[in-house]
């Protein structure tokens, strides 16, 4: 609530900070960039995470443990290390470009990094483990007999997946989407580095306003806006399904 107060009181009382949203040419663009990147990141991360979680749940016990270990270890690798590793791999003179060049497929390096594509690659890579966990928990609690029942009733594998498995993992998908989207909103290290400075997202902008330009009112306004946006998203999702089932409540 302190944030809300600051957003209408600094530098002077009034809604001046909010008016900035409409008057400034840049703010809507930054917000749109942020929302766009976060949505794409969320879609890709959750899709990939879904495949991974599915593979893990259906792997043999030993492989499952190994995959889970890899997943958890990835949480410990520093964001800077990961970010710079992507540069080594996909940069202008990174391994991939050098290799493509060497076998003659390209003559000019492909710009994977230092642009929005780079930001997406880095962010998806960072978010996938987060996307996997809620899905994994959800999938592990499913009664496999229900899937057997579907097969028994004549459904093909694809029908069983789309009509039974996917709807039953909806709570996991929603939890995963919420987690990844909210984390993405607050993410700035990867966009700052892999975007080559050209991909400015709200979280980074807020930190600049707080620490460098001392425009705390703007920072508070944007933070309040993000908070509000997340609340609206939760509310909308709640309209479609009971969020209590997402956060561990009973399914019936």
């Amino acid at each position: 609530m302190n944030i809300l107060w600051l957003s209408v009181s600094d530098p002077e009382p009034g809604l001046g900070n909010y008016a900035n949203l409409f008057e400034s040419e840049a703010l809507p663009r930054i917000i749109w960039t942020t929302v766009r990147i976060c949505i794409i990141t969320t879609l890709l991360s959750v899709s990939l995470g879904y495949c991974l979680a599915y593979a893990m749940v259906h792997a043999y016990r030993k492989e499952q443990n190994m995959m889970l270990t890899f997943l958890l270890v990835s949480f410990w690798i520093s964001i800077l290390v990961r970010t710079f590793s992507w540069l080594m791999l996909l940069g202008r003179k990174g391994l991939v470009n050098e290799w493509l060049d060497a076998i003659g497929i390209i003559s000019e390096p492909i710009a994977f990094m230092r642009n929005e594509l780079g930001v997406l690659i880095g962010m998806v890579h960072y978010m996938v483990p987060y996307a996997v966990l809620p899905l994994l928990v959800n999938m592990q609690t499913l009664d496999q007999r229900v899937m057997s029942a579907s097969r028994n009733l004549g459904a093909t594998g694809a029908q069983t997946f789309f009509r039974i498995y996917l709807p039953m993992t909806k709570p996991g998908i929603v939890a995963s989407v919420l987690l990844v989207f909210i984390l993405s909103l607050g993410f700035y290290v990867t966009p700052a580095v892999l975007g080559g400075g050209k991909v400015l997202m709200v979280a980074e902008y807020i930190s600049v306003q707080l620490l460098i330009t001392l425009k705390w009112g703007i920072a508070a306004m944007l933070a309040a806006l993000m908070l509000f946006g997340v609340l609206v998203m939760l509310w909308v999702m709640n309209r479609f399904m009971k969020l209590s089932t997402v956060f561990g409540g009973a399914t019936s």
Partner: peptide, 10 residues
């Protein structure tokens, strides 16, 4: 100046 610069390059 910093804000204007950031807005110009992003």
């Amino acid at each position: 100046a910093v804000n204007a610069f950031l807005e110009a390059i992003s």
